[in-house]
Amino acid sequence: MTNAENKIATLDVEGISLQSVSLWQITWRRLFRRISAVIGMIVLGILILIALTAQWLAPYDPTIPMMDMNPPEPAKPRQDPCIHAFGCPKDQPQHIAGTDGNVRDQFSRLLYGARLSLMVGFSTVTFAIIIGTVLGAIAGYIGGWLDNIIMRFMDVLLAFPSLLLAIAIVTVLGPGLINALLAIGIVSIPSYARVVRASVLSVREMDYVSASRALGGDMTQILFRRILPNALTPLIVQGTLGIATAILDAAALSFLGLGAQPPTPEWGSMLGAERNQVFTAPHLVFLPGIAIALTVLAFNLLGDGLRDALDPRLAHIS
């Protein structure tokens, strides 16, 4: 089959240079025409770059307090930002974003925080999407009592405020980053399951699915080759927006001390640890806060752009 598929992809007839365009390519093009989505992608690109290169970008280790290091003048707790280029005395060690209460370089912590936040976002959403897709596809494709059981359980999960449920789960499992991820993942399963179920239900009734059945395709072939590929577009939007929510939830859990534990550089816990110093050392509170807001905003912009680009009502405008 792959052999023949390659043939179709490379098939060219002399004199005809018209390219064929798949739906993905159209979506991609439309996405690039939306300024907000492009801004979202740029910000995300920078964040991902920072996350990948944090160990080279960061001037200090983000977890080790620098007490009595760096003579002649050791760093002090909650020191204001010191940037040599902006007139900070050259004999002082440079801390672009100052130091936190435990004399750790805030800038290095912020860079490493990007790594953690993106990891949190992608891993929880991947976890939730996999389980949500399986449950939603079963509910939508098989239907009947199985559909009822699965979806009523999802309704129960959805009935709790998500953060409260996540706190409950973390309380049972014990605080820690992994447990927080698990909690956020579980809490966000229902929204994915619902989206997948709804689109499986509508795609299932399409004539091309009937055609597959008439041609002799069996249930698994039809589900994986016909229904799921066509049902997953709303999931892409939901997933992108879901990453933003997951990052926000993880930050909230960490802020409450239920997520990442010190000294892990996590934006939420950095914010939580220094919240009482908001007037004396505002940079310690605002910089992690701005980082969270920026990341969430970038994912939301991209998600909205994707939603427009994937809108089936615009399918004929390329």
């Binding site: 179709i8 064929s20 798949s22 399409m206 590929p229």
Partner: peptide, 27 residues
């Protein structure tokens, strides 16, 4: 076999049409 009424709903939008035509042969 069957030929459907709505030509817009009867082909999988994510597959090149050659693959759609070959689908039965592959199955």
């Amino acid at each position: 076999q069957i030929i459907f009424q709505d030509p817009y709903a009867s082909l999988d939008p994510r597959m090149p049409v050659g693959d759609s035509v070959m689908e039965g042969l592959n199955i």
